[in-house]
């Protein structure tokens, strides 16, 4: 400590060099960790990209369209898995969006007394916390046997439609899509609820004051005002559905050929990774990395779009 003008013993108004170093050092440490988040995301992309390189070199864009995934001959094409990823996620949205928005409406309007509404919000959030692998287990032993009857009826009655053209077994695209819809429902409903609740209450009063009914107010004022938040939530749910692994792996059947039928067994990129990574070697690892890169790119695209949409909403609210 540099003793300053010493008419105030024991007190120094000049901070010591060490104290200042510690202070700026502390700030630097936090900066580095914050920047570490960016580095992590870039490192994921880079690392997976580098490992995928041999496969990218060998198969190029034909990897997207090839339907053969053959570790014995070392020929890899991921169309079956890409198709499965897109179609399961799409069907899951088709089921979960109306139900999720419906739930969000119940949880944001005053249909129920708040003593009932609050626990309901908690229960829906709880649905989001249940591990994927438990959904898979439940899907195999409870949902699949339960759906067998109705799905067989669908096949027998509407079998002439390509979508229902194969007899349903306990595994297949349809059941993976249904379990996905259950898993993404809480995301859709909780984000939609937040955006519905965020609509300025004076707009509701204005609409009621003009003689609109509750549903006219919802459809013409509340939902249009909250729509970007709802879309953002749906996009996040789409990203989650495309990347969801365990429940899908356990239920989709892991077949390596595409089929137009929803009852046929199929595969997704994440299911492919989950099934093969542990025993892969050589070019197969590179091909799997390539597939992982595609999945990463797909979810990145969806999440960035979601982020942009949601951010727009937040700016508007300010």
């Amino acid at each position: 400590m540099a003793p300053a003008v010493d008419n105030n013993p024991g007190m120094s108004y000049e901070r010591t060099q060490t104290a200042r170093t510690v202070d700026s050092g502390f700030k630097w440490v936090t900066t580095i960790f914050a920047f570490g988040i960016v580095v992590t995301l870039l490192a994921i992309a880079l690392q997976v990209g580098i490992d995928a390189f041999p496969a990218i070199q060998k198969f190029g864009l034909s990897f997207f369209t090839g339907v053969r995934w053959n570790p014995v001959e070392d020929i890899y094409g991921a169309w079956t898995q890409i198709y499965g990823t897109l179609v399961t996620a799409f069907i899951a949205l088709l089921i979960a969006v109306p139900i999720g928005v419906g739930v969000a409406i119940i949880l944001s309007e005053d249909f129920l007394p708040s003593k009932v509404q609050q626990p309901l919000v908690f229960l829906v959030e709880l649905l989001a916390a249940i591990p994927s692998v438990v959904f898979g287990l439940w899907g195999i032993f409870v949902l699949a046997p339960f759906l067998q009857g109705p799905m067989t009826w669908l096949h027998q009655t509407f079998g002439w439609i390509p979508l229902f053209s194969t007899p349903p077994t306990g595994r297949g695209i349809y059941i993976a899509a249904i379990i996905l819809s259950i898993m993404i429902l809480p995301i859709i409903s909780s984000i939609s609820r937040d955006s519905l609740v965020g609509v300025n209450p004076s707009l509701r009063q204005a609409a009621y004051g003009l003689g609109a009914t509750r549903w006219e107010t919802l459809f013409q004022v509340i939902i249009p005002t909250a729509i970007s938040g709802i879309i953002g939530g749906v996009m996040l749910a789409l990203g989650r559905a495309m990347g969801e692994t365990m429940a899908v792996t356990m239920l989709i059947g892991n077949a390596n050929r595409p089929s137009p039928s929803l009852f046929a067994q199929g595969s997704t990129i994440s299911a492919l990774l989950a099934n093969q990574f542990a025993e892969a070697s050589g070019l197969q690892v590179a091909a799997l990395m390539y597939a992982a890169l595609i999945l990463f790119g797909l979810t990145l695209l969806v999440n960035v779009l979601a982020e942009v949409v949601v951010r727009k909403v937040e700016i508007k609210k300010l």
């Binding site: 300025n200 004076s202 707009l203 204005a206 004051g209 003009l210 003689g211 249009p224």
Partner: peptide
């Protein structure tokens, strides 16, 4: 409410 209109303290046009 259709026959008896209302104007509020804070202007509240719809977006």
């Amino acid at each position: 409410r259709r026959q008896i209109g209302m104007v509020f303290q804070q202007p509240n046009p719809f977006p």
